[in-house]
Design a protein around this nucleic acid. Structure first.
Ligand SMILES: [Zn+2]
Ligand SMILES: [Zn+2]
Ligand SMILES: [Zn+2]
Ligand SMILES: [Zn+2]
Lengths: 163, 163
DNA sequence: TTTAATTTTGTTATGTTATAACATTTACAA
DNA sequence: TTGTAAATGTTATAACATAACAAAATTAAA
């Protein structure tokens, strides 16, 4: 977890077989839910798939309109319930500054990522860094603040858009 | 900028003369705007005051309803324009995970804070840490990502609510 | 000091994101 | 198979934010 993970990196540049990313993610999600004794229902699985199929963070209402196209009229709670489930299970992340969601490529381990969001091409890469994690933890500990959840998002230009 | 600043700390605990905090912040804002050649109009100043008067991050529509109470019917753009101005000038910060705003107590220097948000009492403290800043900067630099804006928010329990 | 340009504010309407509340169906186990 | 819990459907509404254009106020120029 020390660099851009391959999937996220590919979002902003070279070609890759993204279908493969999606199926891999869905398979892993399926296994994970079984091992946890929770139900990855068809609706939830389809929402996860739609999030993964998007090459950018996707909003709840974009998911909704895709669902409506394929399954007829669908209402917001359907989507939000699925997204909530996926968030709880760590299968997706929410990007607060975009009100949007991205798939997580290592849902098995609990973690807080750093999201690099390109203001030009719109891609969002999830990266991890132990030094950052440690620095934040030490600060909150020192202050007597009991941290439970963290969001770290950086807006700027990705390598592809800087050139 | 190494610890909880006094103002923020006081939000979650002991009593303090918050009126004093507000007037200090308003005075500093006034000076800063003059020195920058931008106009802190009555409307903008009043919104800044309302944000400061709140002991918690305050939402745009809460500001709106206070304005409406005192000045008669007011529309959302009035508030959002003022908030946008204040954000541009660094006089307030936006907490993305709450869709809410807090006053900044050192608007003269450009900076990115770490916001500690108590899920129990709702207070939000802005703190700063050079180690964190450096760790994030190094990571983005290494990845060739040109960072422009950073959002770092931690949810949990503040010292007062932990006890 | 009138005029012109620019900035700020007013106003109406609408777009976007998210949840409450309650009914129905489905899955699963006793 | 029947009771229970979980998941989904449905309707309505809440909460957050901006587009577009008109009017007023400020500033700069003539
Ligand atoms: Zn992740
Ligand atoms: Zn880019
Ligand atoms: Zn600040
Ligand atoms: Zn607290």
């Amino acid at each position: 977890m020390e660099n851009f993970d391959t999937v996220s990196l590919s979002f902003c540049g070279g070609t890759h077989d993204h279908k493969n990313c999606v199926t891999t993610a869905l398979d892993e999600a399926e296994q994970l839910c079984i091992s946890r004794g929770v139900r990855l229902t068809d609706a939830r699985k389809r929402v996860l798939e739609l999030v993964w199929e998007s090459h950018h963070p996707i909003g709840a209402y974009d998911v909704l309109s895709k669902l409506s196209q394929e399954s007829g009229k669908t209402a917001p709670p359907t989507v939000y319930r699925a997204l909530d489930f996926l968030l709880e299970q760590g299968l997706i992340h929410r990007i607060e500054s975009l009100n949007a969601f991205v798939g997580c490529s290592h849902p098995a381990e609990e973690h807080s990522g750093l999201f690099l969001i390109c203001k030009d091409c719109g891609c969002a890469a999830e990266v991890h860094d132990a030094t950052i994690d440690k620095a934040i933890l030490e600060k909150t500990d020192t202050l007597g603040f009991k941290a439970e959840q963290r969001m770290l998002e950086v807006r700027g230009l990705c390598p592809d858009c800087t050139a």
